[in-house]
Amino acid sequence: MRVKVKPLECTGCALCELACGYHWDEAFSLISSSIMLYRAEEKKDYMGVIVKTEEDLFLGKPEGPEAVKLGELQQRGAGSGGGASAKPILIREACDLCESAGLEPQCVAICPQNALYLE
């Protein structure tokens, strides 16, 4: 079971990041979540969602989702699945599906556009 992304449903509100950050820190920030938007190419409106797990990164790219082994993302350039703006997620906690808090995944629960789901 993992959190997956329907990237074209995402509208970029970042609530998933806030909810996940709250899960880890009981505070609100954009620096500690296991899920993050990549929105570095703003002029192109190229935006997706990355979820970090213990094994890989799920890249919810608008042209199609893809799972990438940890470390591989660093080799990629901007625009090819997160690029430089996605690197901070590599040093963050991996998604635990909020099991440590005994809750359903909070990113899925809060997403107003139903862009996230469990599979």
């Binding site: 509100c13 192109k44 190229y46 042209e63």
Partner: peptide, 24 residues
């Protein structure tokens, strides 16, 4: 959407390439 907003009222329109182009 703006940050933390459930309603996505802003609309990105493309006129210099096909609107359905999703790759970067």
């Amino acid at each position: 959407s703006c940050f933390a907003c459930p309603t996505a009222c802003s609309t990105f329109v493309k006129y210099n390439e096909a609107p359905d182009v999703m790759s970067p």
